[in-house]
Simulated scan of single mutants.
Amino acid sequence: MNLSELHHPISTIINNNTQIREEKLLSICHLLNTSISYYNWVGFYFANHEIQTLHLGPYVGAETDHTVIPFGKGICGQVAVSNANFVVPDVSAQDNYIACSITVKSEIVVPIFVDGINIGQIDIDSHTINAFTVEDEQFLEYVCKEISYVY
């Protein structure tokens, strides 16, 4: 699938005035999980800058114990500090990786900015090693920009 084909459905979800923000985020999780075969876990973490933690928001995929992640810990925690995308081709090669499941082989995390502040991120796990391309990264940047409009 060409990821740009999902731009319109993403915008439609964002502009749906009958859903609250959390419902929109969950709808995006469902859309990405069902439309892209190698997006095996799709979720959002949101920052609490006061206590330097990320908190799990809507997600689709296997249950996770990682509902609160300190800034700096794991891939998500590193993105909270760096404010930069993080693509991990092979999670087993990462020293600061929080293992969610033995089935996860690669991960991508892209921050969401509102007024220049990193408010959270989209986190995607794949059961495929080296699953994510530059196209995925650019697409998820688009998704995060769209999401910023509901904040």
Rank of each mutant, 00 (worst) to 15 (best):
D125P: 03
E141R: 15
Y59A: 03
L31D: 02
V88A: 12
D136P: 07
V81E: 12
I129V: 13
Y39H: 09
I69S: 10
G120C: 09
Y38A: 06
G43W: 11
C76V: 08
I129W: 02
T128M: 14
D125F: 05
S82A: 10
Y142R: 04
I117D: 01
F132W: 05
I51W: 00
G61I: 04
S82R: 03
N85R: 07
S106E: 01
G43H: 11
D90N: 15
C100W: 01
V79R: 08
I10K: 11
N2C: 04
F132N: 05
L140R: 10
I69C: 08
F44Q: 09
E23F: 05
H30D: 07
N33C: 07
K73Y: 04
H127C: 10
L56R: 02
I129C: 13
N17R: 14
G116F: 04
N40F: 12
S35F: 10
A131H: 08
P70T: 03
S92A: 13
N15L: 14
L6I: 10
N48R: 00
T18E: 11
E5S: 13
V109H: 02
I122Y: 04
H66R: 09
I122E: 05
N85E: 03
F113D: 01
A93R: 09
T64A: 02
L6T: 07
K24Y: 04
P70Q: 06
D123P: 02
L56H: 03
E23T: 08
T128P: 01
T34A: 02
Q19I: 10
P58V: 00
I124A: 04
H49K: 14
T128C: 12
V68M: 15
N17Q: 15
V104K: 00
L32I: 04
V104H: 14
G43E: 09
A80G: 07
V114S: 06
N2F: 07
D95A: 15
T103G: 00
I98Y: 04
V143Y: 02
E23R: 06
Y151S: 13
L140W: 10
F139N: 10
L6D: 00
T53F: 08
I10V: 15
T67P: 01
T103E: 13
T103N: 13
S92F: 04
N17D: 13
G74N: 05
S101C: 10
N48Y: 00
E137C: 07
A84R: 14
L31W: 01
D123M: 06
K24Q: 03
Y149I: 08
F139Y: 11
A99M: 15
F71N: 00
I13M: 02
V150P: 02
A84G: 01
I75C: 12
V79S: 11
H7P: 00
H49L: 08
V68K: 14
G57P: 07
Q78A: 13
A99Q: 14
S126D: 06
F132E: 04
S106K: 05
N33L: 09
T103M: 09
Y38S: 14
H55Q: 12
N16H: 13
L25R: 09
N130C: 05
H127Q: 07
P70Y: 01
S27C: 08
P111A: 06
I147Q: 03
I108V: 15
G57K: 06
C144P: 01
Q138G: 02
G74H: 08
C144V: 12
D123G: 07
G72A: 08
S106Q: 03
H8Y: 12
E146K: 15
L140F: 12
E63I: 15
V104L: 01
D65K: 14
E146F: 11
E23N: 03
